[in-house]
Design a protein around this nucleic acid. Structure first.
Lengths: 248, 248
DNA sequence: CCTACCATACTGCCATACAAGCTTGGAAGG
DNA sequence: CCTTCCAAGCTTGTATGGCAGTATGGTAGG
């Protein structure tokens, strides 16, 4: 019955492998909350929507299940997993640990060329923040990915991508919420720490930055109770207490 | 033609989902280097070996490909991926970052109960090191997993498991190589740092511990050139230079 | 002897059919 | 009215057939 609408949503390129395309599209739809939490999605249903057979859909489901984006219950069905606060906090913790080490590395051997690139990204961010704040997420991704590359750890970023799914879902829910200018200032503090070769300053700036989401998390969870699977318990996440602020 | 041999290798339980079982078995065979690097394995070949159809084999391959254990080349074949030194180093870097933060956390709030458990594990390790050194890997896993649990981050360990595949392959190759007693001593240093509530000491002890593999890596790579895909280039891995040794 | 080409066998990918388990709704019995 | 049970229609899991693209080995032509 939806066949007339199929031409509306981006279609599938039949000449290239279908399963990965489906994986990307479905992943996107889940993160954008277009496929809502706890919604049941069957293989045959999705197969009809995209005009393909069940098999590639099934393979896409397997990948989504590995990212904890869907839950496959044998003989019972497949549903979109609600966001687990614990998973978000775990992902955030991992990310903080990794990126803290990355900027420490960078501050120990500041590279003028990479610093110039980072400064350029900061300018870009200021511009975007003033004009297209909704495009800031992409710029933020660029910034953090560039930090990884600068440290010679570009492979790291790809590996962490899989863990970021849950964080991305939260970010989408809080699109207009966060103060983009504040984030740019935090980015600047990180770059400054690297530039003056102060690892401790760069590290603490990064840790502060990545803890921003912890403040909004309970709010977002209570505002969107149907998307989360825990009733926003007030368990405080244990974070490292570090000394040495941005001046040290 | 291998049908008569099938009863030899652990068979498949036909009553439970087959694909996950195949995934585990194949993963194990790759890590144990039973399926050697660059060896071609086709869906139909494996399907015959285990007496199942090609479909569940295919799904197992997909999972293995996500862990970078196999490479699927469309219409060309599937082969066991050789170990990429860069992937091992990336996984090690991530693990160091995470576990450094975990022990920092623990040292900030030492918990007598968990410390007792850790001490017990250390005793166990000393015993195993003296009697069944080949069983040390499992004990080592226990130790690190317990640290995660003690920090209230048990979810973290599971998430990192996927990244550990490549490290596990290396560890299997260097089974008798490493000095288990030295590793136990390093474990003790970590626990001591936690016990006296010195985050810096615990952190540096952990970082030192997880850098052990970096020393052996080039040796292992040159000793098993056919298992690695890079000719053991002497690119030094950038690691954080931290101050404050085990005494600070 | 060397090169270009083509037939063949093999691969992974997709579609389809079949099997087995679970949910659900309604009917039968109390 | 409530409970029990069963059957139809879901679901995912597995098996099988066909397709398109690729490596390979032999052959015809130079």
């Amino acid at each position: 019955m939806l066949e007339s609408l199929n031409i509306a949503l981006p279609t599938i390129d039949q000449t290239r492998p279908i399963a990965p395309q489906l994986h990307r599209r479905l992943r996107e739809r889940i993160i954008r909350n277009e496929l809502r939490a706890n919604q049941k999605i069957s293989e045959s249903e999705i197969a009809e929507q995209y005009g393909v057979s069940r098999q590639p859909v099934r393979e896409a489901f397997i990948r989504l299940a590995e990212e904890s984006l869907v839950a496959i219950l044998p003989q019972r069905g497949t549903r979109v997993r609600p966001i687990a606060l614990s998973a978000v906090r775990d992902a955030r913790f991992i990310r903080e640990a990794i990126e803290a080490d990355i900027v420490t590395l960078l501050a120990q051997r500041p590279d003028p060329l990479w610093l110039a690139e980072l400064r350029r990204l900061l300018d870009e961010q200021r511009h975007i923040a003033a004009t297209h704040p909704q495009a800031f997420i992409a710029a933020d991704e660029d910034f953090h990915r560039t930090l990884s590359s600068a440290a010679g750890k570009s492979g790291i970023w790809q590996r962490v991508q899989g863990l970021k799914s849950q964080m991305d879902r939260v970010r989408f829910l809080s699109l207009e919420r966060f103060d983009v200018f504040k984030l740019v200032v935090q980015h600047e503090a990180i770059v400054d720490g690297i530039a003056i070769g102060d690892p401790a300053a760069a590290e603490s700036a990064m840790r502060l930055h990545l803890r921003e989401i912890l403040k909004d998390l309970p709010i977002i969870a209570t505002e969107n109770p149907d998307v989360f699977d825990e009733p926003s318990e007030d368990v405080e996440d244990r974070v490292i207490h570090f000394q040495g602020g941005e001046r040290s």
